[in-house]
Design a binder for these strands. Structure first.
Lengths: 218, 218
DNA sequence: GCTTGGTAACTAACCGGATAGTTAAACCGA
DNA sequence: TCGGTTTAACTATCCGGTTAGTTACCAAGC
């Protein structure tokens, strides 16, 4: 198969580019990551990026779709119809946390997407984000109609879950990575340092689930 | 008083610079906001920024200190010793939300500060952030020791409150500002659009307090 | 099987514009 | 007129994007 090999090659190149871009966009943000840098990290000439993907914005949208799309897939894959709303919520939260675990660049990239309120997002990426929220909305509404959950602002619940997991994973990463922040804090307030050191390493998904269920259950 | 007048003048100039910088850093992030742009927005020559404040990083630290410091002040100012832990938590959340209300650039700036896990933060700014967390920690510990709150991961509570308020205010701003995202969503999923439209405008502080208290109370 | 022509994939070099930071001169109130 | 303050003008660098040219690959013709 001749055309097949070429397509494989193309997919491989695009994969390298998007992977490198994901990492660098996550590290430095949209403006902070340069196309030159991304090309170097991907082991590819800069013009190759423009040939295969498009301009910087197109590249960013590809990263978002790649990252957020995989989250949707992971969350949906774990949900099953014959779960109670409580179980579904736990599954939902665990799904988000797991995706983040396997894909560390996700939080900052996703946060920036929510941060901008969807401005400048492609239809495709917007649909991904809407879907993640829509799934949660369905769970919450089912819970309310079954008398299991109290009535709440679903968007706020969404932001609390996402914010807690995203922030936490992100802080954890930098906390474990460069110890400079940790060292500074120990110097600033040793007692508080110990408490943070202990609480950062706990399992996020479980604790977030526990708290959200306590907050929501009737 | 000659020296006094000069000091006033200096403070005024620095104030103009920091205010403009706060707005632009919030809008476009660190790399996205240029020093030229900030100078123009402040009605000041670029060299004046370097004369009074320092380089771009120094300017960013000044913005962070200004913004986060005022949050600390506002939150501390509203707390009083003879409140129950429940009341204190509500006051804390309202304090954060109020500061955000009066100072819209705060969320994105603060988020970016937490996002980086404290990397590259000046001692001063780090102290501010630690203080905000420290206050919450005190409230939660008092609640636990009085048997009012369950034992939790305080850092996660911190992130949930901050994440919910910061994200919400930020999304609200862009949602109300440019309606492009809203229009896109209406086209994508009209039913979900209505639900979002309704839930975004609610009072955040009250709802967050309600949820957090439900989650924490024994 | 080997040459050959064509096309997809890739690259080095370059361009205009923007950016952070500097300098030396001008300004102006006391 | 003196010193803190402000400014226009400048430099070096970097960035996003383009172009013209090269290589890798594959299919068809002999």
């Amino acid at each position: 198969m001749p055309a097949k090999a070429q397509q494989n090659r193309q997919e491989q190149t695009i994969g390298k580019i998007v992977d490198a871009a994901t990492r660098l966009f996550a590290e430095s943000g949209y403006a902070g990551a340069s196309v030159d840098e991304i090309a170097r990290a991907a082991g590819v000439n800069k013009a190759t990026i423009y040939y295969h993907v498009g301009d910087k914005d197109k590249l960013y949208q590809s990263v978002l779709h790649d990252v957020i799309g995989s989250t949707v897939q992971n969350v949906v894959g774990n949900l099953s119809e014959n779960q109670t709303p409580e179980e579904k919520l736990t599954t939902y939260i665990r799904g988000v946390a797991e995706t983040v675990e396997r894909y560390p660049p996700l939080p900052p990239v996703m946060m920036r997407a929510v941060e901008t309120g969807g401005q400048g997002l492609s239809q495709e990426v917007a649909a991904d984000l809407v879907m993640i929220f829509g799934i949660l909305l369905g769970i919450l509404e089912e819970g309310v109609s079954r008398g299991a959950f109290i009535q709440t602002n679903p968007f706020l619940i969404y932001l609390m879950i996402l914010g807690a997991i995203a922030f936490h994973k992100n802080v954890e990463a930098t906390w474990n990575g460069s110890r400079s922040a940790a060292r500074m804090l120990r110097q600033l307030d040793p007692c508080l340092f110990d408490k943070l050191e202990g609480s950062i390493r706990k399992d996020v998904a479980e604790e977030v689930s526990r708290l959200m269920l306590r907050a929501l259950k009737k």
